[in-house]
Amino acid sequence: MNSFGIIDLLLFLGISQGVFLAITLSLLHNRNKSANRILALLLLIASIMLIGRIFYPKFSGVLFFRIACFVDTLIFIFGPLLYIYIRRLTFFESPVYRMSLYHFIPAFLHLTFFGWTLFYSQEEVLKMIENGDFGMIYFIVETLGLASNLMYTIMSYGLLQIYKKEEKANLSYSQKVQKYIEMFLIGISIFMILWVISYLNSFFIRRIELAFVSYHLIWVSIPVFIYIVGFFSLKQPEVFRIPIQKKKREIKQRLSGEELEQLKKSLEELMVAKKIYLNNELTLKDLSQELGTTTNNVSWLLNNIHQCSFYDYINQYRVQEFILKIQKGEHFKHTILALSLDSGFNSKSTFNKAFKMVKNDTPSNYIKSLKTS
């Protein structure tokens, strides 16, 4: 048995952190609970992989070989769980989204094959290992595992792009969840790249040596990833999940005549007289309820008559509200951030982005231009 070193200590810290975060996330209430359950499973999978990395090289024998083979099944589960996590975190679906069982067929086949090896004695399995009979099996397993995880990572990026588009159609503000998911997927992508390099080097090239990609670096980065993901997920506020549009049919003329004119008039009254945009958590659903119509009708009105998204439409009014405050000289008594929040924005970043879009300038430069004019 090999001795334990500093790398093993770091991996142990990653394991304890992963298990702690998995338990903590499972116990959180009213904070993206269904998504956090999946994230807890992902963290447990990463922890189990780290356990295997610590003990498998230090113990020989058929028993540990068999245990390691069964643990390898997790590589076929990680990808589907990743996709489920991103989907549950960003989109509202009733009932809650669950993947079809066929996505887990590779994991089932892997378990079935290595379950079949249990019918062989330890001596027979040891002889098969020495003869290299598992070489082709290892190649097939790693090829399918890598392809599977790459596919679900790409699918998760696709979900993020859909979410970005739907967020502008449903929310008048930006959520921090976008940045969190981007960083999460970038972390996963780095592991995918390292895995591809390792895969090519193991089965095809066999001569390449890259100083910046080492065996220890790949494994030590896992506990670092666990810590970062866990930290941000614990800080992540409850996300407003957007209803996912499974089928979109383009309707050329959804509203017309008196109905269209009445909706336009009611919308203008809400914006000008009632200033509903001052609600910094205003959603398309909220606006539709105030207008006494459907979200589809409001979306059609904004997209086809006003030629903009819900996000852009609401923030145009907020920018104008901010400009009115500046013209009244309120910026001499209050900070720009305070005035932006009073105008309906929920964050500095959303305000700056919206102001730049409407005025093609920064708020500070705009105020300076007023002083010189």
Rank of each mutant, 00 (worst) to 15 (best):
G52F: 09
L341C: 06
S47I: 03
L370K: 07
L11M: 05
D342L: 14
K179S: 13
I242L: 11
I15H: 01
K127H: 15
K348T: 13
Q245N: 13
R87H: 05
K164W: 06
G52I: 09
G292V: 07
E167I: 06
F310C: 07
I222F: 08
T372A: 00
V298A: 08
F92D: 04
T372I: 06
E259Q: 14
A22G: 06
P80S: 05
I197H: 08
V224N: 07
H331Y: 08
L263Y: 10
E330P: 00
I367W: 04
Y85M: 04
G135T: 15
N296Q: 13
V213S: 00
N315K: 03
V19H: 03
R207V: 07
K356G: 12
S221C: 05
H216D: 12
F332N: 09
T372L: 02
Y227I: 07
N352I: 10
N304A: 04
L50H: 06
F92N: 02
S340H: 09
G187L: 12
V141C: 14
G329E: 02
P223V: 09
Q245W: 08
G14P: 02
F119P: 11
F55K: 13
G257T: 13
Y83C: 02
Y173F: 15
R318L: 06
I244C: 12
L81H: 03
I162C: 04
K359E: 10
L217C: 05
V358M: 10
S288A: 15
I244Q: 12
L160K: 03
G230D: 01
V358A: 08
I48T: 14
A107N: 10
S94H: 06
S174Q: 12
V125W: 11
V141D: 15
E238R: 12
I38C: 02
S174F: 03
F231D: 09
L101A: 13
I190K: 08
I129D: 15
F59R: 12
L200V: 12
T294K: 13
V298F: 08
L302V: 02
K274R: 15
V196L: 14
V196W: 08
D133V: 14
L287M: 09
R207I: 08
G344Y: 11
A354L: 10
V358I: 15
I305D: 10
S47C: 07
S256W: 14
L278I: 07
H306Y: 14
G52L: 11
F114A: 03
M99R: 07
L282H: 00
Y102C: 09
S16C: 01
I105C: 12
I15E: 02
K246G: 13
V213H: 00
F119I: 14
I140F: 15
R88N: 06
V19G: 01
T90S: 07
E268Y: 07
S3P: 06
I140C: 15
I326F: 00
F78M: 07
Y180P: 00
R53E: 15
F332H: 09
F184Q: 00
N279S: 14
S343F: 13
L160I: 01
A22S: 10
I162N: 05
V319D: 01
L126P: 05
D312V: 05
T335G: 09
F134V: 14
E321F: 00
P95M: 04
L339Q: 06
Q327K: 05
Y85H: 03
V220L: 06
L10F: 04
I6H: 02
I244W: 11
K328E: 03
R53F: 10
L234F: 07
F355S: 09
